[in-house]
Amino acid sequence: MNWSRIFQNLNYAVSLLLFLMGLYTLAMKPNLIKKIMGLNILETSVFLFIVSIGMVDSGQAPVMAHGAAQQVVVNPIPQALILTGIVVAVSTTAVSLSLCIRIHQKYGSLDACEILGREVA
């Protein structure tokens, strides 16, 4: 383990931690709304990781001013892709939450174990 490099890349390490927390919620919490919240944490952690890769120290935001010759800017591609990702994330959240409403109307519960009729692990 290269601890000094991990400490320099603190954003990567924290997004890794958030990823694991989201995955834990997705796997272990029986409540469906809680699972969707975990999915949102997972998504944002990946977004944070990818945008952090594109970061350049002393770089400006990727908006080129009029006539500026050599401007140091951060990498625009990850930001454009993550902009797509954020909007897709809210779409999936909306669809899964409407599914939650329908499931509650049919089964009267949002507990995954209760709906499936299984014993609690």
Binding site: V51, G59, V74
Partner: peptide, 18 residues
Amino acid sequence: LRAPDLALTEAAVGAGVT
């Protein structure tokens, strides 16, 4: 992280709509 577009979208979508 020098991503003003993402900041705007996240503030409107994450903190608002979601």
